[in-house]
């Protein structure tokens, strides 16, 4: 366990140390020494910016992500369960997925305005939707026929079949989509804030850059990176608990 932790931390430690050493004597205005950035961190991210920049960003990310999760899974189950619906939807889905979500920001802003939270939540939700939706469709579609027959022959009701068979059975694929969506969501959270003059983590980075507060700008970027790591760690924790059966099943299949 400690060995694994050391291996995992090895490269980050080396990279940070390299940055620290190489930037130590830097006099460049745009590349301040890492020591200066670290020193700026506690004074930059005090209670006030956390309340006004970090928390709103996280709230929008959470809202957009949850909307995408609910809509994506619901639509994915519907499309994945019905062959006709799938044949109708698939070309459209492929097209919509191919549109880069950031390009939607100006469009959505036309309707919902640049400054409010709505544009940002909608942008995040639209971006997160596709990986979740497409993976759910695939997960539901590839559900074992024998499991479906079993559910039918034991007369499991629609709700039980949905919850206990369809959703549980496709949960590994849903989780794979949700993991992709999480990184898309963080990216869109920042991008959606770059456009508006509203507060938020992305807005803060732009604000610092425009105010020539370069070390502060760098702290914002580092904070975003740390946030991404923390969110993916949280995701893996949830996944680890809910998909324990899937890991066991895969391992058992490998041993045969």
């Amino acid at each position: 366990m400690t060995r694994r932790a050391l291996v995992a931390l090895g490269l980050p430690v080396v990279l940070v140390a390299t940055w620290w050493v190489l930037s130590a004597g830097s006099t460049s205005f745009f590349w301040p020494p890492l020591s200066a950035i670290v020193a700026a961190f506690p004074t930059t991210w005090t209670a006030d910016p956390i309340a006004h920049d970090v928390l709103p960003s996280l709230a929008r990310l959470t809202a957009g992500y949850l909307v995408a999760l609910v809509v994506g899974v619901a639509a994915g189950v519907a499309i994945g369960s019905d062959r006709v619906l799938r044949a109708l939807c698939e070309p459209v889905l492929e097209f919509l997925r191919a549109i880069p979500p950031p390009v939607l920001v100006p469009v959505i802003a036309l309707f919902a305005g640049y400054t409010g939270s709505t544009t940002k939540v909608v942008t995040i939700a639209l971006g997160c939707l596709w990986p979740i939706l497409l993976n759910t469709v695939e997960g539901v579609r590839s559900l074992d026929e024998v499991l479906r027959d079993t559910a039918r022959s034991y007369r499991l009701g629609r709700l039980t079949t949905l919850r206990q068979v369809v959703l549980r059975g496709s949960s590994p694929r849903i989780a794979a989509g949700a993991r992709q969506a999480l990184s898309v969501g963080v990216i869109l959270m920042v991008i959606s804030e770059l456009f508006g003059a509203d507060r938020g983590l992305g807005a803060a980075v732009v604000r610092f850059q425009r105010g020539f507060a370069i070390p502060q700008m760098w702290t914002g970027i580092i904070l975003l990176g740390l946030l991404g790591v923390a969110l993916s760690g949280l995701f893996r924790l949830v996944e680890h608990r809910t998909l324990a059966w899937y890991r066991g099943l895969r391992q058992a299949e490998r041993e045969v």
């Binding site: 024998v146 034991y154 549980r168 899937y246």
Partner: peptide, 29 residues
């Protein structure tokens, strides 16, 4: 009034449920 035991035992049991859960699910229903 009918129960079926399929040939593909590995595929007819729900891998996310325990043995108890698998046997109990139809009864719960």
């Amino acid at each position: 009034g009918m129960a079926v035991v399929f040939q593909e035992y590995g595929r007819s049991l729900f891998p996310w449920l325990t043995v108890r859960g698998n046997v109990g699910l139809p009864l719960k229903e």
